[in-house]
Nucleic acid binder design. Structure first.
Lengths: 132, 132
DNA sequence: TCTTTTATAGTATTATGGTACCATAATACC
DNA sequence: GGTATTATGGTACCATAATACTATAAAAGA
């Protein structure tokens, strides 16, 4: 694996995916964490951010939890939310201005990047409904 | 930019690329750092690792520096050296065993991953000789 | 031999992401 | 109303990566 996402993004996507299989049912952070084998504390924090961003809904109290209402975000949205957008950067190596005339990774890399973006944009939570 | 490499890898690739344009000439860490706009201290550390790994050669003293002898590594080698291999992981989300029956990112992602690997393997320092 | 330049090495500092802990607020159920 | 359950929020801790600092070793040149 060359492309590696952050722990937070992993938790968000897997957790949301689990919710998606539950069709609007409210699921506690505890249960989600157990299902996707994540640290409960971290998951709560991540999901707080998702709630604030409107990606997921929540209700407190017994039989409360997190749930998906009509939200059907694509993965790219979640990605940007947790990893940051960084539209400024046009270099995977994090440079704002390249020290060389032409990028040492070249256009082939830009194409791969674009493919990944399209993929993440095409994947939606609603695609995961039938999962287990 | 969705795919983001570490600072260390950026420094290594750009620094090596600069050396590649210099055709075996010895260049001080100071000059390399200035050229690629990197922190000098960090660059020295990174290049120490590259020397130990045999990717680049070095000589101390005045008119010393780092230089490429016959080394013509591909980018994938440098990548693995600095980012780690992680053959164990078959998931960009860092899970060793998926909580779901099928990966939520699917095969499309694996293909992109493979394309990136091929790209990095195909790029070599010798490709950069004519650069500026 | 002395000085300067350079890499090497060890360690310390800083920033960040992940994790843990604790108090609080909301809600359901008895 | 009391209690249990759950999300929320704040803060603190820990590991790691990036960065900085300091001392040392090697080599060149005067």
């Amino acid at each position: 694996m060359l492309i590696r996402f952050s722990e937070g993004l992993s938790i968000a996507l897997h957790g949301l995916a689990y919710l998606a299989t539950k069709n609007g049912e409210k699921i506690s952070g505890k249960e989600i964490a157990k299902k996707i084998d994540a640290a409960e504390n971290t998951l709560q924090k991540i999901f707080q951010r998702l709630v604030k961003a409107g990606v997921v809904s929540s209700q407190r109290g017994p039989s409360g939890g997190f749930y998906l209402e009509d939200s059907d975000v694509d993965f790219l949205t979640v990605y940007k939310l947790l990893e940051g957008d960084d539209k400024k950067l046009n270099c995977p190596l994090g440079k704002t201005s390249c020290p060389f005339e032409h990028c040492i990774l070249g256009n082939d890399f830009k194409n791969i990047e674009k493919k990944l973006e399209e993929l993440l944009k095409s994947k939606r939570l609603s695609d995961l409904k039938g999962r287990s």
